[in-house]
Amino acid sequence: MNAKQTENPSIFKLLLKILQGALIGLGAVLPGISGGVLSVVFGIYKTVMELLANPFRNFKTHVPKLIPYGIGGIIGFMGIANLLSFLLEKYPNPSVCLFVGLITGMLPSLWREAGEKGRSKGSYVSMIVAFLVILALLIGLNLSSIVITPNFAWYLFCGFCLALSIIAPGMSFSTLLMPLGLYTPFVDGIGHLDFGVLVPGGIGALITVICLAKLIDSLFEHHYSLAFHAILGIVVAATLVIIPFESFTVSAASCIVNLICLAVGIVAALVLDHFNSKVDVKD
Rank of each mutant, 00 (worst) to 15 (best):
I148S: 11
L51R: 10
Y224W: 10
L30Y: 15
F77G: 04
C158I: 07
L141N: 01
T149E: 13
L262E: 05
A230G: 13
P92L: 03
A168S: 07
L240Q: 01
L212F: 15
P64C: 10
L30A: 12
N93Q: 14
I203H: 06
L259A: 06
S123Y: 02
I75F: 14
L16I: 02
Y224L: 09
G76D: 12
K13I: 07
S172Q: 03
P108F: 07
I71P: 08
L206T: 13
L84K: 07
L98P: 01
C97T: 10
P92A: 06
A28K: 05
N258H: 04
A230C: 10
A163V: 08
G32Y: 07
F42L: 12
V40N: 06
I44C: 02
V250W: 00
L26D: 09
I18E: 03
V279E: 03
D217H: 12
I24A: 12
A227C: 14
I216H: 05
F131N: 09
V96T: 15
V271G: 06
G73Y: 07
G115A: 11
E246V: 09
E221P: 03
G72Q: 03
K46Y: 01
Q20N: 14
L16T: 14
L176D: 07
T104S: 09
I203M: 07
N58M: 12
I210N: 00
G105Y: 11
L15I: 07
V48W: 02
G140L: 04
P200H: 10
A268E: 08
G233M: 07
Y124R: 05
A28Q: 12
Q5S: 15
E113S: 14
L137Y: 09
V264F: 13
T208D: 04
L177Q: 03
Y45T: 02
I243Y: 05
P108H: 08
S126G: 07
G36Q: 05
K214R: 15
S85H: 13
L180I: 05
L14F: 15
L198S: 08
E50D: 15
L193C: 08
A213T: 06
L52Y: 13
A263F: 12
D188W: 01
L14V: 06
M106G: 12
L232T: 09
L215I: 15
L135K: 00
V235Y: 04
G25H: 11
S85M: 09
R112T: 15
N276H: 09
L26T: 13
P185R: 03
V209K: 03
S39Q: 11
G196K: 11
F228N: 08
Y183V: 06
S251D: 04
V241D: 00
M78D: 01
D273T: 15
L98H: 00
